[in-house]
Design a protein around this nucleic acid. Structure first.
Lengths: 177, 177
DNA sequence: AATATAATCGAACAAAGTGTTCGGTATTGA
DNA sequence: TCAATACCGAACACTTTGTTCGATTATATT
């Protein structure tokens, strides 16, 4: 790969990453990026079709690195899985600033954010039903987050499953004490 | 409230909802909305500061309705919670099209989407560790989704907890068999 | 029914962003 | 050295945004 290409690519990544620390993804413009990266407009579009493509490339770089060597078959035991998860989390530290920026974006998250406000109120009343050997805020986040993901799954599947069954499934995979 | 206001508000909601069925939230413009709603440009901005405000108002309408009467203290027992969750899911059917549209948005979801691809591969190897009385795709979605939410929580808390502890917490609240 | 009030219209506006093109310049790898 | 190619940068047409303002129109009230 041409040195110039790599240099430009890195400059764009770095600028994008820096911008993400102070600005939401949706509000960052290509103009912002090329200004910060000090790169010509046409050069940007020579590398990336769009802003989303840039994000995708960046994610691939990060994830390929983190999950490298993690994808082989292991004896499937929960302790082993736990170690793997810890390992992934450990590597994520290397990209702390990028990730923080990206995760603070909006949109479907706008919807989920509002939904979660209501779910949180609801689950708070039932916190004592569940496993309590974890910090309360972790537990609450887990319940709200995973039930939110359940709703996404359900909607994605065109709400084919009955609501009773979905609720049953959710209770089934979540540990009570 | 003036009839005209309500009429305009409804027209905008309806148009927005219709647009969401065929177009991602991020790509819908105010122009699209006022064209479909057949409403003056200035009228739109008289009602909503921005597109996000519109979404927020819409969400409030939906959630206030669904969670109405759900927010009082009950005897906190898991079967009772299960019924409540089912009830919420049931009501969500009334807003199927809106919700489907909103939940298909991108951005932070772009990042999470890529991350989840990797997580899914990983969890697939460990599926047999977990509770199996649910459909496999539900289980996989739950594990990937809730671990993704765990990562969000962790990042949001500035990664203060050690990665080992986070992994431990996650395993603790998730039911194995 | 008459009237004051308030919502809507529509056109125009500056500002900002998008994505593309193209001729010229500079760097690279062979 | 030299051909290939990556970059520059300016210009382009186009879209979107958010605001303004005077002219209409519908509304609630008396």
């Amino acid at each position: 790969m041409d040195r110039r290409q790599k240099k430009t690519r890195d400059a764009i990544f770095k600028a994008f990453s820096a911008l993400l620390e102070n600005k939401r993804y949706e509000h960052i413009t290509v103009q912002d990026i090329i200004d910060k990266a000090d790169v010509g407009r046409s050069t940007f579009y020579a590398h990336f079709e769009t802003k989303d493509t840039l994000l995708k490339s960046m994610c691939s770089d990060i994830f390929d690195h983190i999950f490298e060597g993690e994808m082989c078959e292991y004896p499937t035991q929960t302790p082993q899985l736990e170690a793997r998860l810890a390992h992934i989390l450990w590597h994520l530290n290397d990209h702390k600033s990028d990730i923080s920026g990206i995760l603070s974006s909006e949109s479907a998250d706008l919807f989920m954010g509002y939904l979660k406000e209501y779910l949180a109120k609801l689950f708070k009343m039932h916190l004592s039903d569940f496993h309590t050997q974890t910090p309360p805020d972790f537990l609450l986040n887990h319940l709200v987050g995973s039930f939110g993901e359940t709703i996404k799954w359900w909607v994605k599947n065109r709400m084919n499953t009955s609501s009773e069954d979905v609720a049953k499934y959710f209770i089934a995979v979540t540990k009570t004490h």
